[in-house]
């Protein structure tokens, strides 16, 4: 495996919810990749499909969801290649990946932690399961892990129950469990959204330093542009089940190419920025997922919509230089002359 071969490569992923009321294409043709030791940030509003796309890497989709197409290639460090999309969602193969090679942390640690087991027990479980360590050795490793995530008084915390911990400490415990087997990929689904600002800063700082020390790749899902700017190397912006733009973090923040990215960034007030009388808004509402508009799904709200094109044809995915992608008609027209970004 060379340095450039992605650790995870999602190609043309489709996830559908088949409900009584109709079919919702929660994820519709998403392609993403994460290289070894890289932090990929996925930004989007609720309903954009960011969580669902990433959960399919773990085959942790809700029961009503169907992985309808595409592949999710995962290349574990030992070599080889697994298409996770083809694995049975309850099978042995996916279970040996979860927790062993891929760790996951959630928005609300209280729902992910078992209330009836001690933190120590829960950190030790993946260690004993996947690494086959004896009880004593596993406990030592658990203590090390709690020290690693800078849990105060790790010895005491081994025997504490989740309800005795504050929100920030629970998130640290979750991280310790996710990192128990030295995974090569950590999936973080809005891990700081429920936390206070100062605690959020602590957790982001911790994740960054752990990433530097352990060298794992992180996929970080969030709706907060500040958080993603802080932690990600590359970002992907999602809207209505599609990636509308992706590329290195600095470039996207400096010159967003998709009208949605631009509008979204403008609608967030910035700390310390000059005060404006009004916030820029995106007109209209998020479309009904049962009745997605024809053509580019953003055309109903887009200020740069081209009549007869955007409302008819699917927007193509355009490769821009510097590892950037954008899914927009404006760029296909100007592909030779360069984008006319505003």
């Amino acid at each position: 495996m060379t340095e450039d071969t992605p650790l995870v490569e999602i190609t043309d992923l489709g996830v559908e919810f088949r409900l009584r009321e109709g079919v919702v294409r929660a994820v519709d043709g998403v392609s993403l990749h994460v290289r070894k030791g890289e932090v990929l940030g996925i930004v989007g509003e609720s309903g954009s499909g960011k969580s669902i796309s990433v959960r399919s890497i773990m085959q942790l989709l809700p029961k009503t969801a169907v992985l309808s197409r595409g592949s999710v290639l995962f290349r574990p460090p030992g070599g080889g290649e697994i298409d996770i999309a083809k694995l049975d969602r309850k099978g042995r193969d996916i279970r040996s990946l979860r927790g062993r090679h891929i760790g996951m942390i959630f928005q609300e640690p209280m729902t992910a932690l078992s209330p009836v087991h001690t933190i120590g027990h829960q950190v030790m479980t993946p260690i004993r399961l996947h690494l086959g360590l004896a009880k004593k050795a596993a406990r030592d490793r658990a203590r090390e892990l709690l020290q690693l995530v800078q849990m105060p008084r790790p010895d005491q915390m081994l025997d504490a129950y989740p309800h005795e911990l504050s929100g920030g400490m629970r998130q640290r415990a979750m991280i310790a469990i996710a990192l128990a087997c030295n995974p090569s990929l950590l999936i973080a689904d809005e891990p700081t959204t429920a936390l206070d600002v100062t605690t959020e800063a602590q957790i982001l700082d911790l994740l960054k330093s752990l990433q530097e020390r352990l060298g794992m790749a992180i996929i970080f899902i969030t709706h907060n542009f500040g958080v993603v700017a802080d932690i990600a190397d590359r970002i992907a912006v999602m809207y209505m089940g599609r990636v509308v733009e992706s590329g290195p973090v600095d470039d996207i923040f400096e010159s967003p190419q998709h009208p949605y990215t631009r509008a979204l960034m403008a609608s967030v007030p910035r700390l310390g920025a000059e005060r404006r009388r009004r916030l820029t808004t995106i007109p209209g509402m998020v479309p009904d997922p049962f009745e997605l508009p024809r053509g580019c799904s953003f055309h109903t709200r887009c200020s740069e919509m081209v009549e007869g094109v955007c409302d008819r044809l699917d927007a193509p995915l355009i490769d821009l230089s510097g590892g950037r992608n954008v899914r927009c008609h404006l760029h296909s027209q100007n592909q030779t002359g360069g984008p006319n970004a505003g």
């Binding site: 109709g22 009745e291 024809r294």
Partner: peptide, 13 residues
């Protein structure tokens, strides 16, 4: 396939 997914756009409202 778009038409397959939304067969009754008229009376849904």
């Amino acid at each position: 396939d778009t038409t397959l997914i939304n067969p009754t756009p008229v009376d849904t409202n």
